[in-house]
Amino acid sequence: MRIAFFATCLADTLFPEAAKATVRLLERLGHEVVFPPQQTCCGQMHINTGYQKEALPLIKRYAKTFDPYDVIVVPSGSCAGSIRHQHAMVASAHGEPGPAARSESVAARTYELSELLIDVLQVEDVGAYYPHRVTYHPTCHSLRMTRVGDKPLRLLRQVRGIDLVELPAAEQCCGFGGTFAIKNAETSTAMLADKMTSIVSTGADVCTAGDTSCLMHIGGGLSRLRAGVRTVHLAEILASTEYS
């Protein structure tokens, strides 16, 4: 299958390993990945910070860039959620019915990584090997906006060598929340402290999730504490094999 890849601005700029892993994984499964270079950012930061007018060109850019493709994958539950639940809404709220319709059509072809694998490609065992103790944090937007359910866990359970341990209070927000992490830094950090306590209590050496944004926040906290736990994007685990 020919799959268009939306890397997300954050993975493209700061976490290229997560983006490269997505490409490696899909190619290993026998699919063709294309990266339309006109892509930049989904605009969620602008929408959620109260700058819908500024987000509008980014919303249109996403729709225009990916309209030619039948299947689009995003290694982020949060960006997928914004594309599906905010793009058309913001465009129509700003009196742009044409772009809103196009956004809706492209959004319907946009899948978060675990959704693409399980719902579209119908594969649960991606042939991965990852011999580490891992705990999975279900990010809020993947859970309550994109509604990926237990798909990431179903994929992780099939990984060979993995020691998958359950995260206590897993569904509680880590405290990232985009610009919330800066505008309400103290509250965000208090939420993070509890999330880190839960992660450390599992004895895992890797915390994984489907969003680089939440992982940047959790990883930044764990690094500051020298907690000895790494954060790794779901795609990187699924892309790992005995040979790589």
Partner: peptide, 24 residues
């Protein structure tokens, strides 16, 4: 206001190459 981030969290190490450049 970016110091709000670093008061409790480290920033990630900047990668040598963006994904976009790697792809190109």
């Amino acid at each position: 206001p970016l110091s709000g981030w670093t008061a409790g969290r480290d920033l990630p190490e900047f990668p040598k190459q963006t994904f976009r450049d790697w792809w190109a």
